[in-house]
Write a protein that binds this DNA or RNA. Structure first.
Lengths: 154, 154
DNA sequence: TATTGTTATACTCTATAACTATA
DNA sequence: TATAGTTATAGAGTATAACAATA
């Protein structure tokens, strides 16, 4: 594959230093997201859209700003996603009872159904993929969740 | 923040089941990528572009298909990235010695310099962020690299 | 006929800037 | 004046489909 003779078995350079190891982590993160995106594109909704439905499912009605914060994007970006979901009839807007500026978004009946269905499909794939890993690898993944969040928030 | 009374401290629902835990992992992965993207946008090159320079730096000249495989994207997508890098004078194309169809891409002198500089800047941020974590958290992150790659490749 | 790469097109995700409405 | 949201615009990152050149 590689002309100058480098071995090209999926970029598996051994982590010699911490620096390299961190770069490896970033690479792994990036690739995992690509994989997740590819997986979700095959079905009706994208990952970003699905996670918004998940937020609303878990937390109930939320404002654009709430959702933007929860997903670490700008309100305008979240607005675009919400506009799409609303157009699809998956979320609906409600006026805020005390603050006229704010708009609350909530799942519609269809949105809730989609959410459950999506959840089922996603889990089917993830469950299978995770099942292929050893118990130790699974533990390693779970142990990394909090540090990754810390890193993302830093 | 959240109208229906859910506590909204950064989506910290405790992982009750493995299913939830895996979803948490996905969420964390997604957010970390968002963070990385935001960080790299501040500077000259994006993460995708930087990683391509990294590949060429580590492996020497590679074809579009090689790079696409290494980064888990379609050749056409990689072509777009390479076109940009070429336009910026960071990579150059060479004809393949034996196969006229293939095109080899290699770092230019400028590309190599940029790569080193980018690498330095990236590491500065990452190093600082990682340093904020406990030793245990750092170990947890590194231990997750291989499983994440396995998951991405599955 | 199969493979490598290019061109054309489109859609998602995200950002910034400027604006409106409400507090 | 500050905050919540919308509109307009733009760019990165991808994908699929159709094509050309080479093997």
């Amino acid at each position: 594959m590689c002309y100058t003779g480098g071995l090209m078995t999926k970029t598996t350079a051994r982590p010699s230093s911490t620096e390299t190891a961190v770069e490896e982590l970033v690479q792994a993160t990036w690739q995992l997201v690509r994989r997740l995106r590819a997986e979700s594109n095959a079905e009706g909704l994208t990952w970003s859209q699905t996670t918004v439905l998940g937020q609303l499912s878990r937390h109930g009605a939320m404002t654009t700003a709430d959702l933007a914060r929860a997903e670490s994007v700008k309100p305008q970006s979240m607005g675009a996603t919400l506009a799409y979901l609303e157009e699809q009839g998956l979320v609906e807007r409600r006026s805020h009872p005390t603050d006229g500026r704010q708009v609350l978004f909530a799942l519609t009946k269809m949105g809730r159904a989609q959410r459950d269905e999506r959840s089922r499909v996603k889990h089917a794939w993830l469950a299978e993929a995770v099942a292929q890993l050893s118990a130790a690898e699974q533990r390693a993944l779970l142990a990394a969740v909090e540090p990754m969040k810390r890193l993302a928030d830093s």
